[in-house]
């Protein structure tokens, strides 16, 4: 029997989908059987980020409406063994799946998979409730901005009220230079306000945008800061004790510029 983890944030654009794709890929790379469920019906993106867009035949709405069997809608990842995607429907909206249907679907998936990662839509309406109804645990993604942290606080309150009591936090897109200059909320401020455990920190990394565009999660890439950060988070999900990575500024000296120029593969 696996566990269902919802990845949520309240605010849009903080990196829920990217996080889902990377954590799912990372868990599968470690040899676990993982399914990603895109609950963002009508605005699906997870398939794009993971590079499976062209392979979609059936989706989550087809499954709950009985147009196909669950296993027909699951798309096997082209790179990583043990990773599957249940895509959202693009031509429908959030009302197409009820809470009961979602609960039934996720419990079926939990029999087959060790990890069911649910990519939650932004907002606190039906789509959000639908995504969290079957979750055993929640990962809240935020960025170090006041508005994102306040939304995360709201979301944590709603999760706790809906009896999702295991809530961990990922702080995404952290920029060391901005924190040092006092222009960004630092980790301690954020944790103090939200009073939940930190699962990990992902530094701002331009590689994320590139890898999302080509449909290849950054976690696969050994050398990228965000890739390392996601692999650390995966290890923590698996119960390993990994220290937080030290955030470095982009080095700007002459020598390091040379190193960077020649160090590139």
């Amino acid at each position: 029997m696996g566990e269902a983890i919802v990845i949520t944030s309240g605010k849009g654009g903080v990196g829920k989908t990217t996080t889902t794709a990377n954590l799912g890929t990372g868990l599968a790379m470690r040899g676990h059987k993982v399914v990603l469920v895109d609950a963002d019906i009508g605005l699906r993106n997870l398939d794009v980020v993971i590079g499976l867009e062209n392979r979609i035949v059936y989706d989550i709405v087809d499954v709950v409406e009985g147009n196909c069997k669950l296993k027909n809608a699951l798309i096997k990842d082209k790179r990583t063994e043990g990773l599957y995607l249940l895509p959202a429907a693009q031509t429908r909206d959030k009302t197409a799946v009820s809470n009961e249907q979602m609960t039934k679907l996720v419990s079926e998936l939990k029999e087959e998979f060790e990890y069911v990662l649910i990519d939650c839509p932004a907002g606190i309406e039906h789509g959000f409730k639908n995504a969290i109804v079957a979750a055993d645990k929640a990962i809240v993604v935020t960025v170090p901005e006041v508005s994102a942290v306040r939304d995360a606080d709201r979301i944590i309150g709603l999760l706790l009220a809906n009896e999702v009591s295991y809530v961990k936090l990922i702080i995404n897109r952290l920029r060391k230079d901005m924190i040092d200059a006092g222009n960004m909320l630092d980790i301690d401020d954020t944790l103090e306000i939200l009073s939940v455990d930190l699962l990990g920190i992902v530094p701002e990394d331009s590689e994320i945008i590139r890898s999302s565009n080509i449909g290849e999660p950054v976690v696969i890439k050994a050398e990228t800061p965000a890739g390392i950060a996601y692999r650390n988070i995966v290890a923590r999900i698996l119960g390993e004790d990994v220290p937080l990575m030290e955030l470095k500024k982009e080095p700007t000296g002459f020598l390091s510029t040379l190193k960077r120029l020649f160090g590139r593969k």
Partner: peptide, 25 residues
């Protein structure tokens, strides 16, 4: 006995004691 979070409201006819934080919103 918990943190009162964004969007939550506690209305009480009497005194309120919060053992936790009361967050923005």
């Amino acid at each position: 006995m918990e943190t009162v979070r964004n969007g939550q409201r506690i209305d009480f006819d009497g005194d309120i004691v919060v053992c936790g934080d009361v967050n923005f919103g």
